[in-house]
Design a protein around this nucleic acid. Structure first.
Lengths: 313, 313
DNA sequence: GCTTCCAGTGGGAGCGCTCCCAAAGCGCAC
DNA sequence: GTGCGCTTTGGGAGCGCTCCCACTGGAAGC
């Protein structure tokens, strides 16, 4: 019957297939995706959930680029992208509902906070879940992450190789795995060079917090000659503080960031930073999810980072 | 029957309602949204389509903030957000499909290029369509926009009020309505002050194009003492060029931008710019769409802009 | 000639809801 | 007691697909 012709199933004669095609054109027939979804028990959509307590973290261009990558990969698998901002209570409720009633064929989870209830819910949900960036705690079954430890180590080693001896760190939030991993990488490199690591001075990944942390650093350790900031925003803030304090970058204080967002290129001086493949992160998350939806069992993926040297260090 | 109890319909006795609720809890019953969608002919989702030939324009934090606003408003109406990046051919095909087969209850359209085929498709589609920002050409039936003309006028008048007499402009893409409207606003203000408007020197809304345009400007009109750039990215580029040319901002050249994104705050010097309510734009688009889905007939909306004075002018 | 096989076809059942309709129950006025 | 109008209840058609099953007829094998 018609259904077979439309889905190019076998056991359909050429004549019949053409007849159906003609009829489709004449009548302007379009299949109803909802009916198909009901019959096949597949919604044809994947959800990208961005957690975090503050909706404005989503304004970080990071997520937009993840989406670009994920969207392209989902397009290839003919899946729609549902975007869920789980910042508000309302938003979280709706994500919970989505997981319970299988409102999507699979879910990508990002920016989870520590002990995020979504982790448990995802665990109980009877549908594929891919994590973007490992959450704090035990590693989930399926995730895509970037090599935060390696990137931070490389960044710090670069500072050391420049002859710097008082290499400080401005950490990101330590209730995120990325924040912790980047501190570990820094620590590894400093210890490896026989230097003393600084204690984890914590920012919250914003420009402002980077500026504040840098001010504290300069006050407590006037002899600091290098800083690894756990992301570009904080590095930009640090740059500003150093400049305002009348010191030069990189002559007096060398600064390295992490992310390689636009801000790194337009900063003054342009920021040496750890490049991470953000679109690829989104793309690989989506591909992993598609594989799961298709019944395969992919393995977790850690994408490489790469130091990009510019003027700040 | 059960359906009535679950949807709090009338004509259900208290006893029955409680019995149903108990059964639901015991069995862990969750209604199937797909089946509901098929029966009600409502998908429970709204699509946000971002057109434009380059997927990377989506990386502009502008869209992320629109999404934050739209997502919040859709949450309130219990609609899911489907995000469609219509940059690739594949993406455009899928949006077309979405429109034709009513894969969503309504669609929000943004970043349309001139003569974008989506405009016609949206017209023919039998479902509510709200435009975010007017497209070039005749105004659509339903849209939300910001007051680009008024904002540009105010920005330019500010430069004039500072005593500047050679007020140049760096336009955005003139194949977008925002680009054109902002040039009109500039032109109105300059003419109103009895000065000569500069011809529309065109950039493409990127930092790099702003820098290049500023270089051309300085070469051709060394006496320029003020610039209105049609967005912050280009203004930041202009800032860089002015600095590199050894001139001071704002002493020698005053610069005003448009958008009030993060880049305006972290620029050196911080950018005087036209603030536009981006989250509100998203929110109002979503609300307008919800109204349409509910059978109401809302009127187009133009949101006000506001000049935010910082150090650059 | 007959059976055996299989590509091709038509007919429904079923997906899990909503919504309408008819029947039942019940109070009230006559 | 009967008739009327109301709330409450159960039953089932229908949403538009997919997928299975039973059937047909022609080619191949004996």
């Amino acid at each position: 019957m018609a259904s077979r012709a439309l889905n190019n199933a076998p056991h359909v004669s050429r004549a019949k297939r053409e007849a159906v095609e003609r009829a489709v054109r004449q009548l302007g027939y379009v299949p109803n995706p909802t009916a198909r979804a009901l019959a096949t028990r597949q919604t044809g959509a994947a959800a990208l959930v961005v957690s975090g307590e503050d909706p404005s973290i989503f304004a970080d261009p990071f997520f937009a680029r993840v989406i670009v990558g994920a969207s392209a990969a989902l397009d290839e698998a003919d899946l729609h992208l549902m975007l869920c901002l789980a910042a508000s209570d309302r938003g979280r409720k709706r994500v919970e509902e989505l997981l319970r009633c299988r409102g999507a064929d699979g879910v990508m989870l990002m920016a989870l906070r520590e002990d995020d209830p979504l982790i448990r819910m995802a665990d109980e949900a009877q549908l594929p879940v891919v994590f973007g960036g490992r959450p704090v705690g035990p590693a989930p079954r399926w995730y895509v992450d970037v090599d935060n430890v390696g990137g931070a180590r490389e960044a710090t080693e670069h500072l050391v190789s420049l002859g710097r001896r008082r290499v400080a760190v401005i950490c990101g939030r330590l209730d995120t795995e990325a924040g912790r991993a980047r501190y570990r990488g820094y620590r590894d490199a400093v210890l490896g060079a026989g230097l003393d690591p600084f204690p984890p001075l914590q920012g919250d990944f914003t420009e402002r917090s980077g500026a504040a942390a840098m001010a504290a650093l300069l006050a407590e350790h006037p002899d600091v000659d290098a800083v690894f900031a756990a992301n570009d925003n904080m590095a930009a803030g640090a740059l500003r503080t150093v400049r305002e304090a009348g010191r030069r970058v990189p002559a007096d204080v060398a600064v390295v960031g992490f992310d390689d967002l636009t801000v790194a290129q337009v900063a003054d001086p342009p920021l040496t930073t750890v490049h991470q493949p953000i679109e690829a992160l989104g793309r690989e998350m989506a591909r992993m999810l598609v594989a799961l939806v298709n019944g395969q069992d992919p393995t977790p993926l850690v994408l490489p980072t790469r130091l990009t040297v510019r003027a700040s260090a």
